[in-house]
Design a binder for these strands. Sequence first.
DNA 1: GATGATTACGGACGCCGTAAGCATA
DNA 2: TATGCTTACGGCGTCCGTAATCATC
Lengths: 302, 302
Amino acid sequence: MVSCHSISETYDVDVHLLRTFVTVASLGSFSAAATELGYTQAAVSQQIAALENDLKVQLLTRRPVVPTEAGARLLEHAEPLLLRLDAARADVVRLTSTPPATLTVGVTPLAGAIPAFPAAIAALRNRMPRLDITVKSGTRQRIATAVARGDLDIALLDGLVAPGDSLPEQAPLTAIGIAETPVAVVLPRDHPLATRPALRLTDLADARWIEAQDVAPSLAEIRRLSGAEGFRSALGYQGTDTQTLIALATAGHGLTLLPATAIPEGVTAIAVTTPRLAHRVELLHGTLRKASAPAALAAMLG
Amino acid sequence: MVSCHSISETYDVDVHLLRTFVTVASLGSFSAAATELGYTQAAVSQQIAALENDLKVQLLTRRPVVPTEAGARLLEHAEPLLLRLDAARADVVRLTSTPPATLTVGVTPLAGAIPAFPAAIAALRNRMPRLDITVKSGTRQRIATAVARGDLDIALLDGLVAPGDSLPEQAPLTAIGIAETPVAVVLPRDHPLATRPALRLTDLADARWIEAQDVAPSLAEIRRLSGAEGFRSALGYQGTDTQTLIALATAGHGLTLLPATAIPEGVTAIAVTTPRLAHRVELLHGTLRKASAPAALAAMLG
DNA sequence: GATGATTACGGACGCCGTAAGCATA
DNA sequence: TATGCTTACGGCGTCCGTAATCATC
């Protein structure tokens, strides 16, 4: 029983359009994406329209600009795809260009805060004193693309996962688990639950939270991992300083979820036991074949 | 110690160029790729030139047309990337279009030859008599892209691996191991080694082989897995019929490596013991979330 | 009424096909 | 000499920017 379908001559999705789509989705705004990418507002609008036209689906709701179901599905493909596109170029040019004398290391704020990190850098400088090392901090997204593009040789990323799980796969990049620590919720001292020894995340679904996208797990991620609605944002915090964030939480502006190791003594914080969650740090690098320095760093961290 | 690199404003590699690059590399010819893709010879030449220009590396040698080291590296990225590009479109449109009433199953020739396959199809038809099933056969490459594009709902692929390993990752597609069988070399009856109970692959490096790309593992793959040079081709065979291939091998036109289960009684064939190799069959499918029929099929095969 | 997405239109650039050139077996 | 890759050039389509329009808060 063999039938011959009409051969669908569907042609390549334009990655240019995917790039702006991802940017628009992540910024939640056409105009913001336009300035980010150096386009005009109209161009971005045309590009999204073209993409939606091509796929015959609406990808974003407007006002507010949020991915539809189809858009969310597309994002799952587009992000690793663009990462690999960058990695492809970087990986090929790395073959010809002479390896630079400086090792550039990326870190997300909470990953750089683990004790092993400065120790490993110190050990590395000790062992290879002639190696010039540069450390750059940034968000997970930026760091991942920088590693893919070859702007960073190696990076430490952090994220919230079920214990034993890895961080979401960064398509062509390889990741090595470095550390896993329990997580805790920072509460104001007089919070009704502050005396509990431990608590379930869902008990706090109705509380007010701080949306601190650059440091703490996003509320959307918390919703996904806890499997519950709620976790509404009472305050946005843009920045990477955990001290400030903890101060805000302690003062009652909202709750925040942090790795236990990042919370100083004296701060009211309760461990989260359900669901089982861990703050995980991973070492990320591109497809360097003879990865000498990265391997050394991994050994020190591991 | 923070330094600010010159921000490399590298822009996206054109996937259009990647597509033709992959085609040229796999066909080993500009003109053949041109006809395959519906371009003119000149256009393909320009595209490859543009890509090499963009990356500032020669990607292919000419005459013969073979990937350079940089080209090979680029291929490693380009193939899964293009697969994912197809999968992205297919995955999004699948959300809107109503699921077709017919299940389309792909198989590579040797995967379809395992006993479990026709049995599973039979069981599936029995259990879901109203489901229309179509089976299509093809090469691994074609089948993988068809699954990615959604032209196939599910597929069985086969390949040669070290026992326990999976087939090379098909980027966004998920694979489930189905079966693993030992491999054997088909020899002419009067071959000096025909009386051995078992043999090392490297003992046959100097022999003449049949390059049967569509059925058996390619000689390049055999070289890679055995870690030895040699395995020169005495005869090319294009086709998927193992009987013909075995007849050629038995008649002394060259050796060929096949899964033991695909070799009938009476044919002179010696098991390969070193290196440890297995013929592996995997079930491949796209990112169908509620994969009812595929799941059922997997269960039957597993 | 202001912010922000969409539509209209014109110019520039890119890309492919035709055709001529050139190297290698 | 023939096959097959490369270079030259012209036309067509695509895509972005400017500018005007429309919708929503």
